[in-house]
Amino acid sequence: MAGTRKFVKPSTPPNSEINVTPLVDVVLVLLIIFMVVTPLLEKDIEVRIPETEDVPVEQMPQDNSQLIVKLDADGTYSINADPVASDDYVNKLKRMLAAKTKEDRVVFFVADDKANYGKLVAAFDGAKQAGAFVLGMATEDIPLAPAGAPAGDPGAAPAPAPVQ
């Protein structure tokens, strides 16, 4: 009696298919929860948009103290429309920034679409070495002062147009 074992053989073979009914139930419950909770999560964010005014270029005040560095497609630098050699770029910018207070040491950059990105980064680094406090990037070409405009600094350009 101790030597014999009896095994119970199931009458049906094991079911190897996945039962998806519980999965569908869980997914539907989660869907309902998210559908109820989502409208409650929406919160209004108050945004104050400044009022803009279109000012013609001729009437814009000319600020001759702005420094605008332009990088052309061929890689040449110009500060306020005066071409500058790459070797002399940092020194000239340093001389121009030395006369300004720290908060007024703002340099704007305008780069041609086909300009070398490495040259633009080098211009940024050079401006920081020269003592620039704030670096700005203009997305559109900044027009030069009209021919009848009063001349301040030699080679100075107007302030960039406000972004709208």
Rank of each mutant, 00 (worst) to 15 (best):
L97Y: 09
A149Y: 02
K43P: 07
A73G: 13
P13K: 11
I79N: 08
A73Q: 07
F124L: 11
K128T: 14
A138N: 11
M1Q: 07
G155H: 06
Y117N: 14
D72Q: 09
V90Q: 11
S16D: 06
S86D: 00
A149S: 14
R5E: 13
L67V: 09
T38D: 01
A85F: 05
V90N: 09
M35P: 11
N19K: 13
P150K: 04
S86R: 15
K128N: 12
L67E: 04
Y77K: 04
P50Q: 08
N116I: 11
V134C: 07
I18W: 08
V36E: 00
V107Q: 03
T4W: 02
A99Y: 10
Q62H: 13
F133N: 11
S86G: 14
F108L: 03
P22V: 12
L23N: 11
T139V: 12
E53C: 10
Y77A: 12
Y89V: 09
G118T: 15
D113R: 15
L31I: 03
K94T: 12
P146Y: 10
D82H: 10
L97T: 03
D82R: 11
F124T: 08
G136Q: 03
T101W: 05
L144N: 10
K70D: 01
D141L: 03
V84G: 03
V8S: 13
N19T: 06
A156S: 15
T4R: 08
V84L: 08
K92E: 01
L31R: 04
A111D: 10
R5L: 15
N64Q: 01
E42R: 03
P158Y: 00
F133S: 08
P158D: 11
V134P: 00
D82S: 09
D112P: 01
V24K: 08
I49A: 12
